[in-house]
Design a protein around this nucleic acid. Sequence first.
DNA 1: CATGAATGAGTGTTCATTCAT
DNA 2: GATGAATGAACACTCATTCAT
Lengths: 193, 193, 193, 193
Amino acid sequence: MSKEKKKNSILLASLEIFTKQGFYKTTISQIAKHIGISVGNVYNYFPSKESLAKASIVFVTEKLATILHNINAQDIPAKEKVACFVEEYLEFLQKHPEMIEYFFRIYLANREVFYQSDDSGFSLAESFIKELEKLVTDGIASKEFANQDFYISFACISGILGGITFLHGEKVLQADLAQYKKNLAHAICKSLS
Amino acid sequence: MSKEKKKNSILLASLEIFTKQGFYKTTISQIAKHIGISVGNVYNYFPSKESLAKASIVFVTEKLATILHNINAQDIPAKEKVACFVEEYLEFLQKHPEMIEYFFRIYLANREVFYQSDDSGFSLAESFIKELEKLVTDGIASKEFANQDFYISFACISGILGGITFLHGEKVLQADLAQYKKNLAHAICKSLS
Amino acid sequence: MSKEKKKNSILLASLEIFTKQGFYKTTISQIAKHIGISVGNVYNYFPSKESLAKASIVFVTEKLATILHNINAQDIPAKEKVACFVEEYLEFLQKHPEMIEYFFRIYLANREVFYQSDDSGFSLAESFIKELEKLVTDGIASKEFANQDFYISFACISGILGGITFLHGEKVLQADLAQYKKNLAHAICKSLS
Amino acid sequence: MSKEKKKNSILLASLEIFTKQGFYKTTISQIAKHIGISVGNVYNYFPSKESLAKASIVFVTEKLATILHNINAQDIPAKEKVACFVEEYLEFLQKHPEMIEYFFRIYLANREVFYQSDDSGFSLAESFIKELEKLVTDGIASKEFANQDFYISFACISGILGGITFLHGEKVLQADLAQYKKNLAHAICKSLS
DNA sequence: CATGAATGAGTGTTCATTCAT
DNA sequence: GATGAATGAACACTCATTCAT
């Protein structure tokens, strides 16, 4: 296996196990065992457990950022962009719940892991937030969305998606995720207007 | 100090330190020191660290449930109830950020701490969710809100509030919390309609 | 309850719980609860956990010593004395297994509890050993027993009784204890001859 | 040092310190220090303190079982087998008092450590008991010993040896252990006849 | 690159003992 | 005498990280 591939497999394993068990309950040994390598070898690719957690969040946010970037690149109304993003988000959540849940459970919650004195941990999600900002700004420009503080919009979009993600993780949703697509997109757009 | 009062002071200290440092990085010794008692004495009031975390979440959700319960009891339109709740929520967040953040950071994130095999950890927040459900149901009855899956509404209300709470915790909000009151209430009502 | 009676009830409770759970796994709190008094009050009667254990062994050995003393006082052959002692010992074991087992499990095993630098822990059983010595000496005088080192005789008598006590505690003996009376007395006498 | 050898050295250190100080007064740290390794490394070889105690007892009983097995294999009268066993037992006790005393002090006394719900702790000594049973059965077959309940015979053999072991541990025996060989063998054979 | 034995600081929890009431 | 809250030292066990092979 190439160096890059092995690094990636370590990342994916971490992501999965961190999400399932939490950051602190996950041991390096478990991650190593999950992909059949030795504990010491994990350290050849990542210098610490913390760095694994950070690399994981960058990995996830870049996936989300890419999705949103491609949508933003299209020449369609902002409301449609929201609908597209909700759709792709739900598909992603369906396919890789561990990645999305990692974002909401591990990253947003374990502040002490991701934050350094000199650097807001928030910055790890920068690429995604940039795209979100673009989406909102475009919508405001086209008068589709109300011209309000970006943070309100941010709270609406990521809050509502976070809420549904949480419920999905709790396994309380009776219907298939895709069923919620339309209503969620509608709710988000309304909240932004 | 009465027994009940001491138990409460331990709870409040836990809440604060858990929120600041995370569940796992917080030691019983720190909690004990914070209120000037011995480690062993903490265990005279709570049988384990985990039980402290659980008692904390019950404490917070009951506070929130009480606030919402009183609002629900009033004879006003559902939209006004939402506005009232947002106002009181923001005041509460301003005054006791550790309690609200505890709810979003510690409870929602450290699944492995709160969940037992036989019992959804979700149930610890039951009293609050019940009130939220009442608010939404009433609004649907009065045609103020759209008749949609409660989970969507749940995601909207707690998601948007969670989002702003997160941003507040990140200290990125430039304006005073109260400034966001109107816009947030508006966004939530819109999202429910 | 008189002071003496309460002291005794504490002693008996200790004996029972020490035997059932071992010295270290028994807490003062358990002993106190067992007789319905407070932890602090136990310390009004015994200055330490260790002193409780020591008082217990003195209590038991004095019971055994009394039994043997009365037998020694009779004008019967030594072999009959052995038979009598075995009989009464088995009856005692039947009735108060916790006392006898205390002697063999707790006292003989937890050396570190009973021994002080200046004093052999062995001395706590002195009264009983004295009587045993008398029994053997008398038997040698009457030519019933061989004139051998007392320690050999001691090993035979208390060893064989200890062995059957152990097996009784293990609950592997199918027959009633009394059934073993004759054979045990016979074995002991033979071993002494 | 090979893995197996290190495991063994941990075992021997445990045996010695458990015997000297008792199970509960012995700390893993002491065991580790005694052989110059770290606390954590002990746990690479034994998963718990309890498992160390159990492995120790298996180790000792297998030593005793082997001794007795070799004697049983010889074509000599049962009485001579007893004499051989007593001799080798005393030699072993002389050479490795910690092992034999471990058997009598730690194993027989700390029931709560060795017993599981589903399994008599007694079973840890199975291999030795099997050999003892063979010795007795053979002696009965050759009419050297009386045909009595095996448990009586068990109490006699292990009781008498346990008694002398106890006295040896108390350091009350004036003569050399070997001096008691003949008398002990004689006493045991008599008690079995 | 890969291994996994070794390290040792760190933490939840227990419990004998004390003492103010 | 009686209570039981308070103390704090002690200890089993964990696990991120290192490094010799």
